[in-house]
Design a protein around this nucleic acid. Structure first.
Lengths: 197, 197
DNA sequence: GTCTATAAAAGGATAGAC
DNA sequence: GTCTATCCTTTTATAGAC
């Protein structure tokens, strides 16, 4: 995985910036994190930082994108099921900075003309498709019955995961995985009934 | 309900400020809304605005608090059930500014030392209790069976509602009520099984 | 690739007059 | 209650040297 050639240093620095950005966000929140402080902590001037990421928004998008790629490699790709999804959530409890950034920045970006608006819309579509796929897998395996719309289940699963992350930020004792599991079981049961949604 | 006496004008102005704050947040998002613009739109100087609300955070807390009181009066108090909860959600689709503010500001406040941190923790506790109560009511009425922890259901319901609001901000065609209803039905079904959570 | 310097704006908050 | 005036801070972003 190691980078070679003339870009090795630049790539390493980029990685370092992404990591430090996360620390600052974890400590002060995304709204009150500043490029200046991230630059200072990474041993760069603010202008130096902007050389790597053209704007605050691009930086945060890059952080979240890197996370998604790591999660895909570690959890989704080897196991594109609900169990894999739960592992992603469980892993999130180890990176509170990322959860803080995701919750805060995606909320900020939900306004119409935000620079990251399309980024989050596209991300949501992707996650939704993955989630639908996991429901279909469960249907194929018999865990879920046929009498439920996978899209409805997927939307609710993703929504609950997002909402639980908000709750978890306020109270770290919340067991996100257990609650998602209970919900999944409920929807699975419902899907076997003849008159399900 | 009309205010009398020496505070009538001050109260009316407060109300006006709360409403205008909402418009600005709806248009630019909570992060990029400024006290200056809110003040300008309400025909006040920024210093004048600060006379009513000591800080940006207090203003936004007041907006959300007023909403909660309205919702309680209109929906919760007459009907503290899941149906009442759904009516609150359905009503939210008519006030996108409030949803934007809630999602964005609560995310910002989830950081430890934020001025509104305690406000949101307390609010979450309140909503959670209400939600638990609605599950217990459903158990008493037989819609829910006894084999499920009302707190687990309540947490997931609240989480899904929050998460669906995020989704809805990005895509207004999402039917939050239908999805919450499907989820509720799933948990209800599960609760009748002997081996539920 | 990194810095210095600086722009240019906006932010929240306060003091004190009326 | 409201304004003017002002403060100080902070922000992102750019220009141009090295």
């Amino acid at each position: 995985m190691k980078q070679r050639g003339p870009y090795a240093k630049g790539t390493a620095k980029r990685e370092e910036i992404l990591a430090v950005a996360l620390e600052v966000v974890a400590a002060k929140g995304c709204r009150n994190a500043s490029n200046r402080e991230i630059a200072r902590r990474v041993g760069l001037s603010q202008a130096g930082l902007m050389h790597y990421f053209g704007s605050r928004e691009e930086l945060y998008m890059a952080v979240l994108d890197a996370r998604d790629h790591r999660d895909a490699t570690a959890y989704w790709d080897p196991d594109p099921s609900f169990a894999g999804f739960l592992r992603v959530i469980e892993n999130n409890t180890r990176v509170p900075g990322l959860v803080q950034l995701y919750v805060e920045f995606s909320a900020e970006a939900s306004i119409g003309r935000h620079p990251a608006h399309d980024f989050f819309r596209a991300r949501y579509e992707r996650v939704r498709e993955l989630s639908i796929r996991s429901v279909r897998m469960a249907q194929a395996g018999g865990e879920f019955g046929p009498n439920i719309d996978p899209a409805v289940v997927a939307d609710v699963i993703v929504a609950a995961a997002d909402g639980l992350q908000q709750q978890w930020l306020l109270d770290r004792s919340i067991d996100m995985v257990a609650r998602l599991q209970a919900m999944w079981d409920g929807m699975a049961t419902l899907s076997h009934l003849p008159d399900a949604a």
